[in-house]
Amino acid sequence: MKKTRHAAVAALRPLAAAIALAGAFGAAHAAGYPDQPITLVVPYSAGGGADNAARIIAQGMGEVAGQSVVIENKGGASGAIGAAYVARAKPDGYTVLYDASAFSINPALRKLPYDANKDFIPVSQAVSVPNILVAAPGSPFNNLADFIKAARANPGKYTYASYGPGSLAQMAGELLKKDAGVDIVHVPYKGGAPAIVDVMGGQVDVYFANAASSLNYVSGGKLKALAVSSGKRMPELPNVATVGEGGIKNFDVVEWNGFFLPAGTSPEVVAKLQDLVQKALARPDTREKLSKLGLTPVGSSAADFAKFVSSEQQRWAEVVKTNSITVN
């Protein structure tokens, strides 16, 4: 019996040595991370809110790390195509997903080629940004109360735009429908730019537009701001009331962007990337550029971001179920 036990222990020694060697290699790899360019996959089109923020943060990350951070746009299916690409990538920290709120909405709406909870490691929330409920400059509505009053009096008459089925813009509109008790019609677009154009022209009545892509239009008088979706007023629009102030209680909707790595990435690399993101977001020049877009830098820990994403998934799953939302 003793010989058998000794033989088993001896047989395990090479495996233990291999595991120890792998751990040492992983630690050494993490110590030098990043020692080559990082590809930051943005699963949305160039020029959109997430892309604009990603490029600002990527520049800061590159300057902190002394390595280039290259943006690669892989749009489609509300971010699902780019997310699937990263889920299949080598988990070495050099292919990173920069996703937005749709990441937490998609699991409730779509059959995905990945598991949002199992195939990714949340690293850090990068920014948060309110949506602005906007209308055409010549719209008869001057605030949210005006719009709700008209919508209640005319069920099915008024429309709201979104930048795609399952987007946060649609979810905000659906939440408004539920909480305000109004019947307004969803008009989805293939991106925020065409949605804004049609709101400006009066082809659609209102739109919960990402502040990063609409603030300049509001400031320039090309769009009229009826309300902001966050729990607090935006410093850039101090005279525009929140949806909550407009009579819809507990309405606090913000777009968010964050960093994810493929499952299987070592904890050491996750920690290194988290630190890199936080240092980039702490740079005064990075913060100033983001602020001009109406974006609030966050830079949360991986643990806090994971909790936040989970809470967002639960919230939007409930709205999808309650409003019987589907996508084609």
Rank of each mutant, 00 (worst) to 15 (best):
F120R: 01
F120T: 03
F120N: 02
I121W: 00
I121C: 00
Q125C: 02
A126Q: 09
A126L: 10
A126E: 09
S128Q: 15
V129Q: 15
V129N: 13
P130M: 00
N131H: 15
N131E: 13
I132Y: 01
I132E: 00
L133P: 01
L133W: 08
V134N: 03
V134I: 06
V134R: 03
A135L: 14
A136K: 08
P137K: 14
P137E: 10
G138D: 11
G138H: 12
S139C: 14
P140E: 05
F141I: 11
F141M: 11
N142E: 14
N142W: 11
N143S: 10
N143C: 09
A145K: 14
A145Q: 14
F147A: 11
I148A: 09
I148D: 07
I148Q: 09
I148V: 14
K149I: 15
A150E: 07
A151P: 04
A151S: 09
A151G: 06
R152K: 13
A153R: 08
A153V: 12
P155W: 06
G156R: 12
G156W: 08
G156C: 07
K157P: 07
K157F: 04
K157N: 06
Y160W: 06
Y160S: 03
A161W: 01
A161R: 04
S162I: 03
Y163L: 12
G164A: 04
P165Y: 12
P165G: 05
G166E: 13
G166Y: 12
G166K: 13
L168T: 11
A169S: 06
Q170L: 05
A172H: 03
A172R: 02
G173Q: 00
G173A: 03
